[in-house]
Simulated scan of single mutants.
Amino acid sequence: MLPALTGQSPESLATWLKEAGEPAFRAAQILEWVWKKKVTSYDAMTNLPATLRSKLAEVFRLTSLEHSTTQGSADTTRKFLFRLHDGRYVESVLIPANPALYGEKSDRRTLCVSSQVGCAYGCKFCASGLAGFTRNLDASEIAGQVLAAEQLSGERVDSLVFMGMGEPMANLDNLLAAISLITGEKTLHLGARHLTISTSGLVPQIKKLAEHPQQIRLAISLHGATDEVRQQIMPVNKKWPVAELFEALDYWNSRKNQKLTLEYILIQDVNDSLEQAAILAKKARKLNAKVNLIPYNTVEGLEWKRPPNNHCKAFQQVLQNAGVTANLRLEKGHDIDAACGQLRLKQETAEGIIEAPAKR
């Protein structure tokens, strides 16, 4: 399988051009065609000699993703399903800042990006891990989701959240290579402050990322304020319990200027007690972190339920009364299987790639 051109850094492309006997200035032209003009064929690179276009086609695939399906919803959220070279699938979700009104487009768009095919961490609310872990995505497959979303939507992506399929911190090297492409001046040129990495709580990787020079934002998939509650939802908590996780977050705060976000999915009769809210408020205030509250999004194959809206608001009120910034996200995309991994799971089950997962 040929490597993808969308995985080549400016440096690696310059090296290849030199070895191919081509002038160095061609690198900037190629990168502009790929990342700025977003062409879908080598023939469209009209200021390159035909011989160079032929060389490129012989050595590189133009992209590592093949668009399979787009699902759009009434609130203009769109989910993209992409087929990979090995026949597996990965998905991305494009989310507007606000629902479109009177036919107008939202002024800001966030893309939720996947980092793995499947997931090994088995968070109990998530469809990504229902069929287990297959493999890491490479840099071209991660960054390529952003490029493809812009091509398909015709819109600029303003911010990214790496909280789609997979555990980004378990694929940190490829993720950072992709981020270099996403933030590079000659490539997508999206500011690092507009990127958020979400993790289930891999303590060593949190500390490693804290040393990374770019001011990337960090979100913690918490979902329980105590070990007793969190371990019902997050198996990773057995390896890195709440106390170790929060020690790593203290270290993050000592190295970064970006405010932490604690993600908390509200699951009825599991983690939504007002006692948990009070404990969460204390921990969030100590970290100076904001909290995103997300009522559980029903996933086929899982039996948990979404709390009533009035109870979600009561949970939020406990946090706000304690001086914590707490947003209650009534998330978009219910009608397009927008929870992580659902569309990919349906597609791979339909094709017989995986068996339908049993309920858990």
Score class of each variant (00 low, 15 high):
residue 148 A to Y: 03
residue 40 T to P: 08
residue 6 T to C: 08
residue 56 L to F: 08
residue 260 L to E: 12
residue 263 E to R: 05
residue 296 Y to N: 01
residue 325 T to C: 09
residue 333 G to W: 02
residue 337 D to W: 00
residue 44 A to W: 08
residue 140 S to N: 11
residue 46 T to G: 12
residue 147 L to R: 09
residue 349 T to Q: 03
residue 36 K to I: 07
residue 356 A to M: 09
residue 351 E to Y: 06
residue 154 G to A: 11
residue 314 A to D: 15
residue 234 M to H: 05
residue 240 W to A: 06
residue 279 I to Y: 02
residue 12 S to L: 07
residue 68 S to G: 00
residue 302 L to I: 15
residue 127 A to F: 01
residue 183 T to W: 06
residue 26 R to E: 11
residue 118 G to I: 04
residue 45 M to I: 09
residue 317 Q to W: 03
residue 272 D to L: 06
residue 184 G to S: 14
residue 20 A to M: 11
residue 61 R to K: 15
residue 101 L to I: 12
residue 273 S to P: 11
residue 85 H to R: 12
residue 184 G to Y: 04
residue 113 V to G: 00
residue 250 D to K: 10
residue 311 H to A: 07
residue 57 A to C: 11
residue 64 S to R: 03
residue 272 D to Q: 12
residue 94 L to H: 00
residue 106 S to T: 02
residue 227 D to I: 03
residue 42 Y to V: 13
residue 279 I to C: 05
residue 321 N to C: 13
residue 117 V to N: 02
residue 248 A to I: 06
residue 135 R to Y: 01
residue 151 Q to Y: 05
residue 322 A to S: 15
residue 226 T to F: 07
residue 268 Q to A: 13
residue 229 V to T: 02
residue 214 Q to T: 10
residue 182 I to G: 05
residue 15 T to H: 08
residue 197 I to K: 03
residue 33 W to V: 11
residue 14 A to F: 00
residue 308 P to F: 09
residue 79 K to M: 04
residue 244 E to R: 11
residue 82 F to I: 01
residue 212 H to W: 14
residue 111 L to N: 02
residue 188 L to M: 14
residue 223 H to L: 10
residue 88 R to W: 12
residue 93 V to M: 01
residue 96 P to I: 02
residue 96 P to Y: 02
residue 159 S to Q: 11
residue 237 N to Q: 05
residue 104 E to C: 07
residue 295 P to S: 10
residue 109 R to D: 00
residue 188 L to I: 10
residue 169 M to W: 01
residue 223 H to N: 15
residue 321 N to R: 14
residue 106 S to G: 07
residue 27 A to S: 14
residue 21 G to H: 14
residue 112 C to S: 03
residue 209 L to F: 11
residue 162 F to C: 01
residue 352 G to M: 13
residue 278 A to D: 12
residue 57 A to M: 12
residue 216 I to D: 05
residue 27 A to E: 13
residue 332 K to R: 15
residue 286 K to L: 12
residue 92 S to K: 03
residue 295 P to E: 08
residue 10 P to G: 10
residue 102 Y to A: 13
residue 159 S to C: 08
residue 59 V to K: 15
residue 20 A to F: 08
residue 296 Y to R: 01
residue 164 G to N: 02
residue 210 A to G: 14
residue 145 Q to S: 13
residue 311 H to S: 11
residue 28 A to N: 15
residue 105 K to G: 04
residue 99 P to G: 07
residue 25 F to S: 12
residue 280 L to V: 10
residue 132 G to R: 10
residue 359 K to L: 08
residue 136 N to C: 09
residue 103 G to T: 07
residue 63 T to I: 00
residue 293 L to K: 07
residue 316 Q to C: 07
residue 273 S to L: 14
residue 225 A to K: 00
residue 76 T to R: 02
residue 300 E to V: 14
residue 118 G to C: 05
residue 31 L to H: 04
residue 57 A to L: 10
residue 121 Y to L: 15
residue 254 S to T: 14
residue 30 I to Y: 07
residue 64 S to T: 12
residue 175 L to T: 03
residue 76 T to F: 03
residue 91 E to K: 01
residue 66 E to S: 14
residue 290 K to A: 10
residue 123 C to K: 09
residue 274 L to N: 13
residue 150 E to I: 03
residue 243 A to R: 14
residue 139 A to R: 06
residue 321 N to M: 10
